[in-house]
Design a protein around this nucleic acid. Structure first.
Length: 429
RNA sequence: GGAGAGGUGCCGGAGCGGUCGAACGGGGCGGUCUCGAAAACCGUUGUACUCUCGCGAGUACCGAGGGUUCGAAUCCCUCCCUCUCCGCCA
């Protein structure tokens, strides 16, 4: 949520910044609501003040044993206008809040112009895509032997956009998860955190999935309030909702491994084959809760932590700075990590690292106290995937495949696979 | 799911419908004392919002939302949550 003062005091600049990301502010509506709010609030507070003093007077008169009936009649008339004003004010306030909740975050000044991914800027490349002495296969082919990756079985169990993994592939998937968790816990200083996979609407509003993007989420039948989390960002970030943190406790650095559930409404026909876009996938998520002045550096740091995963897995990637229009609703600045996929002959997103500044904190009322006795201030929130496990699996298969269909395991991952250096495909029967 | 108890400020914990933003205790902050510290003592200490250039003034908030009343933390209704016991369950 934007600070309403952006709209009150710097309407032109705010409108322009929102336009950069393709959002058209309904300026007339805001100005009309705001004017009405002001009028009603001033009047309501006047009336309340008067009622308070008069009621107090009645109390004192009664204590002196005077006749209070005439006084009561007088205040009674005042009460009717007050009630009307309060009701109207509530309505206007609610409309104003609803409007505010629909407005996305402002992009940082140096975020590139542009309305979609074509305007994203490549920051740098790491690693060099390998030259294959044979025609590389994609992960779907590589996953065929022994039902390593079985999409048809998943259709029977659930439906499209799910997968069943077997044997070494399932273990590799688990190994990747464990490796990433350990890396962030032991080398990057994150606290391992276990969180609920269902979230209530308040939490989803806090991070920005609701009220606008409910169709992207799965709801639960038995309790209409719950949604399946689309990312661990939701539970992790909301751990500080409505909290006032001590300054010394910052930064908070948390990592969690969770499944993520996304309806993928509106992505029909995109990535229909394979593991790239699933209704259910695993992700290791990094979240930092920081003081405002620390947030730019913290985003760069967190980006480095995500990159460390790809480097350890010996995967070539590039870092993209997203254009204003390609960022998510709540983000002020986003870097995507795109990993090289030989099967697609393209770089594909495997991590997204964003700073939300105070946008989520304001929705969550997540604050910290700079010094004992001082007023609380909103924290900044930052998160990033470190990294998407399913896509990491794809990248590993496709980049480290060998001519015979076996998969080379990078040295740092080997301890998680009992020291195995090559995954041999099961022999076909 | 059944039965019961309860939701008050940073924490504990009071609160006949009227000077209650809330006693009291703890904690925090500032000070006195001290070489320093502890103890003791004194003072202070919520959040959000509105109007105002500013000084300042005002409003709201005692789980949430309604209602009764001139006036509600206190009375009534609805909802939410937490805890205890039973049942069920990994």
């Amino acid at each position: 949520m934007l600070d309403i003062r952006c709209l009150r005091q710097e309407l032109d600049a705010t409108e322009a910044a929102l336009a950069r990301r393709g959002y058209t502010l309904d300026r007339a509506r805001f100005e009309q609501l705001e004017a009405r709010r002001k009028e009603l609030q001033v009047r309501t507070q006047e009336l309340q003040a008067e009622r308070n003093t008069r009621s107090k007077g009645i109390g004192q008169a009664k204590a002196r044993g005077e006749d209070i009936e005439p006084l009561k009649a007088e205040v009674g008339r005042l009460g009717e206008e007050l009630k009307q004003c309060e009701t109207d004010l509530h309505v206007v306030q609610a409309e104003l809040d609803a409007l505010l909740m629909q407005i996305p975050n402002l992009p940082q000044a140096d975020v590139p112009d542009g309305l979609d991914e074509s305007a994203n800027v490549e920051v740098r490349r790491e690693g060099v895509p390998r030259e294959f002495e044979f025609t590389p296969r994609d992960h779907i082919d590589l996953g065929l032997p022994g039902g390593w990756l079985d999409f048809e079985a998943a259709v029977r169990v659930a439906g499209a956009r799910f997968v069943v993994m077997r044997g070494a592939m399932a273990r590799l998937h688990r190994a990747l998860t464990q490796f990433m968790l350990d890396l962030h816990i032991e080398r990057h200083g994150y606290q391992e955190t276990y969180v609920p996979y269902l979230a209530n609407p308040e939490s989803l509003e806090g991070t920005g999935q609701l009220p606008k993007f409910d169709e992207d989420l799965f709801s639960v039948n038995c309790d209409q309030r719950f949604r399946l989390i689309p990312t661990a960002e939701v539970p992790l970030t909301n751990l500080v909702r409505e909290q006032i943190l001590e300054a010394e406790s910052l930064p908070l650095k948390m990592v969690a491994h969770t499944p993520c559930f996304r309806s993928e409404a509106g992505s029909y026909g995109r990535d229909v084959r394979g593991l790239i876009r699933q209704h259910q996938f695993e992700k290791v998520e990094l979240v930092q809760i920081v003081r405002p002045e620390a947030s730019p550096a913290a985003l760069e740091e967190l980006l480095g932590h995500a990159e460390a995963v790809l480097q350890a897995l010996e995967l070539p990637y590039r870092v993209m700075l997203l254009s204003a229009g390609d960022m998510g609703f709540s983000a002020a600045r986003t870097y995507d990590l795109e990993v090289w996929l030989p099967g697609q002959d393209a770089y594909r997103e495997i991590s997204s690292c964003s700073s939300f500044e105070a946008f989520q904190a304001r929705r969550m009322q997540a604050r910290f106290r700079p010094k004992a006795g001082e007023r609380p201030e909103l924290v900044h929130t930052i998160n990033g995937s470190g990294v998407a496990v399913g896509r990491a699996l794809v990248a590993l298969l496709e980049n480290h495949q060998q001519a015979d269909g076996s998969i080379r395991i990078p040295a740092q991952l080997q301890p998680y696979l009992g020291g195995t250096s090559v995954l041999e495909p099961p022999s076909e029967q």
